[in-house]
Design a protein around this nucleic acid. Structure first.
Length: 437
RNA sequence: CGGGGCGUAGCGCAGUCUGGUAGCGCGUCUGCCUUGGGCGCAGAAGGUCGUCGGUUCGAAUCCGGCCGCCCCGACCA
């Protein structure tokens, strides 16, 4: 993409409404614009990041055996009357009426809908287990939206639902998602820690929140320091096997959110190993047994012909929230520092002198070579002073910057800068493309 | 939902107390100049001062209603 053609409205100054760093940077770097309280439009650069996050989530869900569906945003109130949650949910639910005066709502979550879809389509224990997910916009009419996309009213969430014949199966499904979540967040460059959590209004008896540590986090969290650097990506995962040992490895160390905090247990950890911090919830998994299947009569025939109520779980990842969460976890004074896996562009070419034919020619050649290797690249061909370009590029945080100017080019060299470490190296221009791909 | 604050140019703000020609910085546009970390000079465009009503010869400014946004708390992916 040529930056001179790109819709990328960056801001030099911090907008007054933005308090926390991720919100400020998302506005300044031209990722989003607010359209009303807690509701955001995604601009080209931000949308690319959102799509990258979505892609990682999707790949890991698919790898763990979940199947993608897409359910609507607008739901009928009748669904929620069946589970008893229509009255219980409260003013967070955006209730609307259609032209025939029917009660509808903008879905805050999809347990009821998926239960009905599943119940109507599956009648035998032979069809279990199943795990269905979708990535869809949700609306929760928060009393006080804040922190940009981290606590918006409209947000993109991956939610999925598992269906099993018995508790043992349900726990296998739970463990699959537990491990899939560890991998998902790790791939985004995040250190997400699963913590024992309250099940809240969704109900159930087994639940973990996946928390990333950040000073601006909304909740106080407590855990064993050993959890921070545990690695999941270096292992081969067999989702058809028994994942309980891996889950145990993580859950054997203390980690709990404020509501579930057990002070005595925490203080048994040697003092140097304790970590009391603040965190941002980026995922939440629940096993809730028959909380929905029972009232909604989701049953299958068992081997002996008996009716068995399905065991369920639900699992959520705040996709749009993650954009803010990743920035909270990865930024510096100059701007965003994107992990490569989610960066809107992996490489930026900083063309220091676009009106110099040789410099422009070298940039275009580099651009084409990188594109040919399927490397996403943004070419700053704007007619601006170098300082402004460097500042913009650091602000939007592309992981690699290739700086091409007349001085270096005269010696056949360009500079490669790493956004995260700040290290720069001079490289012969014809060797550059092979560094990527 | 309790408490607090704010709404003036694209962004950040002053002006409001004490009513009298709509201001500053950044950004934008034009020209010159400059070009390895947000250059310099000159010129220009851009605002029914959130909105509706009231007071007044006259309202961004005083009074009232409404709308919007932000912050703290309680609540939440």
């Amino acid at each position: 993409m040529r930056m001179s053609q790109y819709f990328l409205p960056t801001l030099k100054e911090n907008p007054a409404e933005a308090q926390i760093v991720s919100h400020r940077l998302m506005l300044r770097a031209g990722l989003v614009r607010q359209t009303s309280a807690g509701i955001y439009a995604w601009l080209p650069l931000g949308f690319r990041v959102l799509k990258n996050i979505e892609r990682i989530v999707r790949e890991e869900q698919d790898a763990a055996g979940a199947q993608e569906v897409l359910m609507p945003t607008i739901q009928s109130a009748d669904l929620w009357r069946e589970s008893g949650r229509y009255d219980a949910y409260g003013p967070e639910m955006l209730r609307i009426k259609d032209r025939h005066d029917r009660d509808m709502l903008f879905g805050p979550t999809n347990e009821e809908m998926i239960t009905v879809i599943f119940r109507d389509g599956v009648k035998s224990y032979r069809d279990l287990p199943k795990n269905l997910y979708h990535i869809q916009w949700k609306f929760r009419d928060e009393v006080r939206p804040r922190f940009g996309v981290m606590r918006g009213r409209e947000f993109l969430m991956k939610d999925n639902y598992s269906f099993d014949i018995d508790r043992a199966g349900a726990i296998r499904s739970y463990n699959n998602m537990f491990v899939a979540y560890l991998r998902t967040f790790a791939r985004m460059g995040l250190k997400a820690i699963p913590m024992r959590a309250d099940t809240g209004p969704i109900g159930g008896d087994l639940s973990h929140e996946f928390i990333i540590l950040a000073e601006t986090g909304e909740s106080a969290v407590f855990c064993h320091k050993g959890l921070i650097d545990k690695d999941i990506l270096g292992r081969t995962i067999d989702y058809s096997g028994d994942l309980q040992p891996i889950v145990n490895e993580w859950t054997s160390l203390y980690a709990a959110t404020d509501e579930m905090h057990d002070k005595d247990a925490f203080e048994k950890i040697p003092e140097g190993e304790r970590l009391a911090a603040r965190g941002i919830e980026v995922g939440h998994i629940f096993n809730f047994g028959t909380r929905y299947s029972k009232p909604m009569n989701a049953v299958v025939a068992g081997p002996g012909g008996e009716q068995i109520t399905i065991e369920m779980g639900s699992y959520g990842i705040g996709v749009s929230r993650l954009v803010g969460g990743i920035i909270e976890a990865s930024h510096d004074a100059a701007g965003i520092v994107w992990p490569e896996s989610v960066a809107p562009f992996r490489v930026a070419i900083v063309n220091l002198k676009p009106d110099d034919g040789a410099v422009m020619g070298a940039c275009v050649k580099l651009y084409d070579a990188l594109q040919a290797k399927a490397v996403t690249v943004l070419h700053d061909d704007r007619d601006l002073r170098p300082g402004a370009k460097f500042a913009d590029m650091d602000l939007i945080g592309t992981p690699w910057q290739i700086i091409v100017g007349p001085k270096g080019l005269a010696a056949g060299k360009v500079e490669l800068k790493n956004r995260k470490t700040g290290t720069r190296e001079e490289l012969p221009i014809d060797q550059l493309a092979q560094r990527f791909g």
